[in-house]
Nucleic acid binder design. Structure first.
Length: 348
DNA sequence: AATCCGGGGGC
DNA sequence: GCCCCAGGATT
């Protein structure tokens, strides 16, 4: 960025954006509150997640955990259950830990200073800026993917957004156009980025900033933002054993060091004694952003009480059934499998 | 500074 | 198929 850029030359862009936002703000459930708890939850839910995708999760989460005290006193497994299907499950684990931080370190009162909000588990510079600006009149730009896209286009700036310095770089650009009302400014940038200045096929004709947008005037919108590093998916093969008897089946909880942190899953192996009880195999292919999953699910219907109990005793598995399984958070492919596989029906 | 972590939707 | 999304933690 040229160091001769002066705020006085660009501030009108931010003010224009605020005017647009006054009339065009999206009507979202977290827009009519300044409760830092709700804003915080919404910021975590919508990290790397589209509004349409996470809206039900957000509403259900707030309904069950309406305040920080309720969340802090809940079991971690139930928090994970409300995160089921959202992905990035460390968010759920961290959100729960952070709620207890607020109880223990801040006397149950949500911290109002940016530096304090930043200390909460799972809260980074973006989220701290968003919460402090929306709820406490903080003055930090909430630089996210929308900021990268909108600012790189306005300034026709080819700074690589996959560069680890992009956050600081675009924060400086943001300061050039940022007006006094930072809370509304941050939300306006999100709405503009989502509704107008979209990644593909942006609606430049309707954009309140098109006159000020250098990329638009150069007819080079599609060249911004610049992103060099692409994420490529790696293959992952899993074998699960759906071990069941009399309508019950076996599960266990995953660790927190890989995908599907602390979610529940079927056994990954069985003892030799259970091999004769394998009835069928189902192949599941599941695409994630970072993984190409191919899963074999072995349907193991155990008739022997002895073999069943011996296997459980050896491995410390949890016994559940189709109805109770709804109380546990499963990875999406296993969730789908359980819903299709009506154990209770098969054993009537 | 680089890598990892989900799932869904647009095109 | 490829890309992106109200990012953050870990190494």
């Amino acid at each position: 960025m040229e160091k001769n850029k002066k705020k006085s030359d660009f501030l009108h862009i931010g003010n224009k954006l605020l005017k647009w936002y006054d009339k065009n703000a999206r009507d979202l459930p977290f827009r009519n509150t300044k409760d830092p708890y709700k804003i915080w939850i919404c910021e975590i839910v919508f990290q790397q997640t589209r509004i349409a995708q996470g809206l039900n999760h957000y509403n259900n989460f707030i309904k069950r955990f309406p305040d920080v005290q309720t969340l802090a006193s809940a079991e971690e497994d139930e928090v994970l259950l409300y995160w089921k299907g959202l992905g990035y499950y460390s968010r759920a684990i961290n959100i729960h830990k952070a709620s207890q931080q607020i109880i223990n370190d801040y006397n149950g009162i949500f911290p109002s200073e940016y530096e304090e909000i930043l200390k909460l588990k799972g809260v980074g510079k973006y989220t701290a800026a968003a919460v402090s600006s929306i709820c406490f009149n903080g003055k930090m730009p909430a630089v996210d993917g929308n900021f990268y896209r909108v600012l790189s286009r306005i300034f026709a700036d080819d700074f690589d957004v996959s560069n680890s310095r992009a956050f600081n770089y675009f924060s400086q650009l943001a300061h050039l156009i940022m007006p006094e009302n930072v809370g509304d400014f941050n939300q306006a940038m999100m709405d503009l980025g989502s509704e107008i200045c979209k990644p593909r096929n942006p609606l430049c004709g309707e954009c309140p900033l098109n006159i000020d947008c250098l990329a638009f005037s150069l007819n080079k919108i599609s060249e911004f933002p610049v992103k060099t590093k692409k994420v490529k998916a790696t293959d992952l093969e899993l074998k699960y054993y759906f071990v069941h008897r009399n309508g019950e089946f076996l599960i266990r909880q995953r660790k927190d060091d890989f995908i599907w942190k602390k979610l529940f899953e079927f056994p990954l192996e069985i003892s030799d004694e259970l091999i004769p009880f394998i009835k069928s195999v189902k192949n599941v292919h599941h695409k994630l952003t970072h993984k190409n999953l191919s899963i074999e699910i072995f349907n193991v219907e155990v008739y022997s009480e002895e073999a069943w109990k011996a296997f459980i005793d050896e491995n410390d598995y949890i016994i559940t059934n189709v109805e109770n399984s709804h109380e546990k958070s499963f990875p999406k492919p296993l969730e789908n499998y359980i819903q299709k596989y009506d154990v209770s029906y098969k054993f009537l």
